[in-house]
Structures are given as C-alpha cells and as structure tokens.
Simulated scan of single mutants.
Amino acid sequence: MSGGIAWMGAPHHTPSSAVPGMLGGISLTLARGVETDEFLINLGADPDELAARTPYRELRAPAGQPDRPSPHLNRAMYGTCGEWTYVLEDWGMATWATGYQGKAESMLPREGEEILCLTANRFSPPAQIVHTPGARAYRACFGTDTGQGSALDAALGAAGAVFPSMPEADEAEVVAYFEEHGERLPELVFTAAGAYTGVAIDRDAVEAGELPGTLIAPA
C-alpha cells in the first residue's frame, strides 16, 4: 500500500492515465460534516449506483438511445478516511468546484460542513484551492494561500507550497524560486492538504480502479 496524498501531485501535469483507475491530472475534493452518499448525490451521482458500490474500473457509461443521446457524465472515484469523504476525478476539473462557482444549490457551502477542493482547472488555469470551513468559501491559486491565517494556510507554508510574490521579493528572486520549485508545486500543495486533513489514499488501489466509482451528471 502507498498512502498519503502527496503522490497525486507528482503527475499533476501529465494527461489522464490509461490505467484502469487514475494517475495523471487528478482533482481531489475532501468533505466532512456531511454523509458520504449525500455529498455524492449533491454532486450529481445516482443513489442506486452508489448503493451498488461498483468498482471504478467496472463503470460503464450508458449508451445513448436513437434520437436520445446520453447526458454528459464524468467518472469519479470515492471513499472515506477518518471523518473525511474524498472524491477523485481526472477529467480536468473538480465537479464540486465548478458547481459551487456556478451557484448550484446542492453544492453551496453550509455551516457545519468543511470542504477542501484541489481542482486541476485544466480548462481555466491555474489550478486552484477552494476551502470552505463553513458557509463561506476562500480560494487560492496553487503557489499562494487563502490569506485567512488558517491551519490550512499554515500547512501550505510548512510544505513550501506558498511561493514568494511581488513586492515581498524582487523579480529575480521570484523567478529563481519558480524555476527551482515550480515543477513540484502540485506535489507540495497535495502534501499540505494531506498534512492538514490527515487523509491517506492508497495509490495502488487508485491506479487499479479498485475503489468504488460513480458517474456524475454535472449540474
């Protein structure tokens, strides 16, 4: 077993892998304070499919009927670790992040819930962190923190995931830092998220597609 979640960041810039599960370009959404199936249904999952607990590698999108094409569906892998539910997607974005920004009612932050989302943002870079420690969301691009002085921000700083910026450092220092550490930035962000949440996800199970999967119809 290979745990933690830092490993997801290393192949962040590579295309989605052809393995039975996932490897490259993973977006990760973590949620606590909400029941797992409820959170997934809010994302657009089908309750009956969730009840089946089908392994991700066995998911099959339904074929469209003549003159009735199937709705667009994204595949997701999910599980739990401690008090957190995790959702993995490799289609370029995180469904929760796109839904929340689109004001989808089921995905708006609520008091008593916490969501931490690392979305690859392939269609509208750069990659982003979205953190909702309650009913308000705070966003940060990879390489920055949320500016809230939170425990998450502290974890990002400790992992080296907060890069220097103007005018805190001169241009030459900023460029040199990005040249040295930029390629590892996603790994550093995922390292910080793992340190903050304590979540560990088995890389071997993810690559093999052994975790439960579901098809999500975005809002």
Rank of each mutant, 00 (worst) to 15 (best):
S165Y: 13
L30E: 06
L88T: 12
A6G: 07
G134F: 04
L211M: 14
H181G: 00
S106R: 12
E114W: 01
R68T: 02
G64Y: 09
Y100G: 03
R122N: 02
C117R: 02
A31N: 08
M77E: 11
P69N: 06
L40C: 04
M22P: 05
A137F: 07
T14N: 10
V130N: 04
Y86I: 03
G99E: 14
M77H: 11
T14I: 03
A205F: 02
G134V: 02
T80M: 10
L50Q: 09
L73V: 05
G79M: 10
A192C: 05
A97H: 13
S2M: 11
V174E: 15
R184G: 05
D46T: 07
P186F: 03
D90W: 09
A154Q: 15
P69Q: 09
C81V: 00
R139A: 13
D153Y: 04
P71Y: 05
M22G: 03
P218A: 03
I5W: 10
P212I: 10
E113C: 01
S70K: 07
T197A: 08
T80Y: 05
D48C: 01
P20A: 04
C141P: 00
D46L: 03
E173Y: 02
D202I: 02
G99C: 11
P125R: 12
M1Q: 09
D145R: 12
R136V: 13
R53H: 10
A31T: 03
E49R: 13
A63I: 09
T14E: 15
I41T: 14
L30A: 05
W84L: 08
D90S: 15
W96E: 07
N74Y: 12
A217G: 05
G157Q: 14
L59K: 06
P71G: 07
C117K: 01
V19Y: 08
A219N: 05
A135T: 00
A61L: 05
A104V: 13
G102D: 15
I115R: 07
D37M: 01
P66N: 10
Y100I: 08
R122C: 00
A104W: 10
A76I: 02
Y78S: 06
G24A: 04
Y177L: 01
G9Q: 06
L156P: 01
Q148M: 14
R32H: 06
E83Y: 00
A154W: 07
T54H: 00
G143S: 08
E89V: 04
A51Y: 01
F123E: 11
V175R: 13
S165P: 00
E49I: 00
E207N: 06
G194E: 09
A18M: 06
T85E: 08
G9S: 03
W91F: 15
L116V: 14
F123M: 10
I26Q: 12
L185S: 03
D90V: 02
A10Q: 15
M1S: 13
G198F: 06
Y196I: 02
H13N: 13
G92F: 12
L23R: 15
E58K: 12
C117F: 02
V189I: 10
E113F: 01
